[in-house]
């Protein structure tokens, strides 16, 4: 069994099929069900199942315009696509994915942001089933209850 991300752009940028309010419903749609055949097909010739392309995606998705994520959805989209990495780096208290995420969250003090998350890991991930949307909500309330982060982060909505 093997999964792949190639199809992400379809779901992220070209369909309007997104379910939850946090992001674009990426998490559940990202991987195409794996069979040896479909994997090989998707990666053969570095191809993908894209049906529409940047430059012609305008208005086709509530998540993006002109091939870019909407600025206000960017952090949510990012979190959904990178949950496995974020979960690990949040526990580690550092990492490239976490640094990028802190930028998207408008938190300029990366190390304060990362250390707060690490120390409040239990609150942000009370169970193993926390999804990106819940994680974001928990994180926002932790930021709000942290005096200095609340000052230094400029939360996008």
């Amino acid at each position: 069994m093997r999964l792949f991300l190639i199809g992400l752009m379809i779901t992220g940028f070209t369909t309007s099929a997104f379910a939850n309010s946090a992001g674009c419903g990426l998490g559940s749609l990202i991987f195409t069900k794996d069979t040896i055949m479909s994997q090989t097909l998707a990666e053969t010739f570095n191809g993908s199942f894209l049906t529409q392309f940047f430059g012609i995606t305008s208005g086709t998705s509530n998540c993006s315009a002109h091939g870019f994520a909407f600025q206000e959805k960017e952090a949510a989209m990012y979190a959904e696509a990178n949950m496995p990495s974020l979960k690990v780096e949040m526990a580690r208290g550092q990492g490239e994915n976490l640094t990028a995420f802190s930028q998207l969250m408008g938190c300029n003090d990366v190390s304060a942001f990362s250390q707060m998350i690490k120390s409040k890991y239990q609150n942000i991930f009370p169970t193993n089933d926390v999804d990106a949307e819940q994680m974001l909500n928990h994180l926002k309330s932790e930021i709000q209850s942290d005096a200095s982060l609340n000052q230094s982060c400029h939360l996008a909505s």
């Binding site: 752009m9 392309f53 940047f54």
Partner: peptide, 14 residues
């Protein structure tokens, strides 16, 4: 063959 655009973090994931 066509051009497409996506965030670099998705490329890294792949």
């Amino acid at each position: 063959g066509m051009y497409s655009q996506m965030p670099y973090y998705l490329k890294i994931n792949t």
